[in-house]
């Protein structure tokens, strides 16, 4: 069993098996989740869609965990997987340089053109000094994810992982399938993902 598990798609939010009520869909759903469950972290509005998705999904998981928050720790890793890397942010940045007569490259947009930025956003929010990592696969493959997550516990500092699948192709199309798992339970990761 995983400690806690959250699924967010453009029209569904499921936390620990329970569907959460919401009014919005797509990108607006992420803003609604932020307003309902977070509310005090305006940096959210500067983020790309992948980071917004990762932030609200991690907030739901950590609130479900119910442990004290925002205390510096090195024993929790953040390890995400996806297929599209930072495609939404890449496409948005490309639009700022596509036309020579309308060339306005933005550092605020460029910084999000790396998939691992979301792992940094979650580390900053929660004061996680542990491992942060982003792995890109040709397709969603629970078996490979489970293997790599189990191997991440070879770092002897890592006692728990906030991890899973976090993919986003544009502002309105995304999928989070994240969980919290302890080192003692790593043998069960694969069966829980399938």
């Amino acid at each position: 069993m995983l400690n806690h598990k959250v699924i967010i798609t453009p029209n569904e939010v499921i936390l620990d098996g329970k569907t959460l009520d919401h009014n919005e869909q797509g990108g607006a759903l992420l803003t609604e989740l932020y307003r309902t469950y977070v509310g005090d972290y305006p940096k959210f509005f500067k983020m790309d869609t992948l980071s917004k998705l990762g932030l609200v999904a991690s907030e739901l998981l950590l609130q479900a965990e119910g442990e004290p928050r925002f205390e510096a720790r090195e024993d929790r890793a953040v390890v995400f997987f996806n297929r599209s890397a930072s495609l939404q942010a890449d496409t948005a940045y490309q639009a700022t340089i596509q036309e020579p007569e309308n060339f306005f490259p933005s550092p605020a947009a460029f910084v999000y053109t790396l998939p691992n930025i979301v792992t940094g956003e979650i580390a900053i929010r929660n004061k996680y000094y542990g491992e942060t990592s982003f792995i890109v696969l040709p397709e969603n493959d629970p078996k490979i994810m489970a293997q790599q997550l189990q191997l991440a516990f070879l770092d002897t500092m890592t006692q728990s992982i906030l991890g899973g699948w976090l993919d986003c192709t544009d502002e309105n199309h995304f999928e989070a399938h994240l969980f919290l798992i302890d080192k003692q339970q790593f043998d069960t990761i694969e069966s829980s993902l399938l």
């Binding site: 510096a72 090195e74 953040v78 792992t119 580390a123 929660n126 942060t132």
Partner: peptide, 11 residues
């Protein structure tokens, strides 16, 4: 080897 985060700033 180890990977660690600053938990400080993204850029």
């Amino acid at each position: 080897g180890a990977i660690r985060n600053d938990a400080n700033h993204i850029s």
